[in-house]
Simulated scan of single mutants.
Amino acid sequence: MSKNSSEREFIFTLSQFENPQILEKELNLKLAGLELETKFAGLKIDMYGIEQDLGVEVFVENVLLKSDYSHQYRLLKLIEAIDKGIIIYQAVGFKDKYVKQLRDKILNSSKKVNLYFVTINPELFKGIDLLNSGTHKLKVYENLHILNEVSNPIQLQKEMSIIRPIKGNKKYREKIDWDFTNREDVNNYLLLQLRERIPYFLSFQRQKSNLDNMRIIPCGFGKSGVSLMLTVEDMRYRAFVELRFREFSPPIYYKIKEREEKAKELIGEELKFLDDKHTITYSFKSRGRSVRETVDRLVDVAEKFILAFSNDVLYGEEERLDMWEEFEYSL
């Protein structure tokens, strides 16, 4: 996980998520069902998936520094939580005492866990830093390809690693049959459509937890105190997209409200500004519509929200000339 609000580690992980053959080739694995920032045993896993041939879970932890205490603690907790699987630990370098501690933790147990130590090539950092701080946040996804210019991005450290024959019964099967009477399926279908049609909004790429009982899905909007909220159906049978402002963010809300009429032209007359809640909302009746039809409309509205409001939410006036992009729906 990145520190100080930086997306550097997430950008690195996302590039591997989009190009899994990088890990597959270097580690001789076959990965499927990859997810970003999955919750597991109370931990947030940078990337999670299934090794299809071995039938075991794969957990990837990344740090764009030398191995440190915080990541060491997380990996020790992860080892305690699993009985079988593959852990891939990627860092610029590894401290000997941490390597020994992790190896001992596994070898002194009866757990069938393989541990891959993988070094990250620092030549990647120039591109990562450009994407993190020199690229408009809605343009990062389409420019991930610049990281592919580094020919040897990672290297397996075989002498450190624990690689033994293991076999499990885990299999990834792509979801094709959706049960729209099931809330988890409805939420997963909505997230799938958001990821496929608006992949450049990186918050959608992160896996959400508790989808089986969550009626409203929250997505960070890149700034503390601002959230994009979506639901296929609330308690009043409405579907909606909302941009909610909390903490120190109300000034951004009122700045956007100065262009309320323009916003309605771009998104629709159903758009409302709720001053008492510092919320911009677009809702419509979901009852009588199919889930697919409702989701199609929600995704369309969500994209208009993102394109219209991102510049104001993500960048202040002082950054306007340097970073702002003119999008089709931008205010």
Rank of each mutant, 00 (worst) to 15 (best):
N311A: 07
D53P: 05
N143F: 10
I162T: 12
E57K: 13
L314H: 05
I198F: 10
D185W: 05
N108W: 13
N121D: 12
F284Y: 01
I154P: 10
A302W: 14
I79V: 02
L14H: 06
I280C: 02
Y172R: 01
F309N: 03
I216C: 04
V113L: 09
F240K: 00
V150R: 00
R236W: 02
K175C: 04
T279S: 13
L307P: 00
N132Q: 08
K223V: 15
F17E: 08
K137Y: 14
V313M: 08
D234V: 04
E303I: 02
G134P: 13
E319P: 10
T13R: 08
T294E: 06
L23K: 00
R195W: 10
T13L: 04
G33Q: 05
K304I: 00
L102R: 11
R259E: 15
Q157S: 14
K97W: 10
G55P: 06
I79W: 05
T38D: 04
K255Q: 06
P199L: 02
S15F: 15
S249M: 09
K223L: 14
K272C: 03
I267P: 07
L54V: 13
E293T: 10
L115S: 10
Q72S: 13
I120P: 14
V63D: 15
D275I: 11
R287P: 03
I87D: 01
M323F: 12
N114T: 06
L194K: 00
D312L: 14
E233V: 01
F221W: 09
K100Y: 09
K44H: 11
N108H: 14
I106F: 04
L298N: 02
S224Y: 12
L65V: 05
Q90V: 00
F248R: 15
Y141V: 05
Y237R: 08
P251D: 09
Y282Q: 02
Y73F: 15
K111A: 04
F94K: 03
R215C: 07
Q52R: 12
H145C: 10
K257T: 06
F59G: 07
L14P: 04
P218R: 01
E174M: 00
R287H: 02
Y89K: 15
D96I: 12
L298H: 05
L156S: 03
I252F: 11
Q155H: 14
S310D: 01
R289I: 01
N4G: 05
N182D: 05
G268A: 11
V150I: 12
I162C: 09
M214D: 07
F240N: 02
Q157F: 13
S249R: 02
G268F: 14
I87W: 05
K105C: 14
K95I: 08
F117S: 07
N19C: 14
F248G: 08
G127V: 09
Q90E: 04
P165N: 11
I146N: 01
M47W: 03
K77R: 13
Y315A: 02
K285N: 03
S249D: 05
S209D: 13
I128R: 07
F221H: 00
L271C: 10
I120T: 11
L331S: 10
K84V: 06
R236S: 10
F305W: 08
E261V: 02
E142K: 15
E9Q: 03
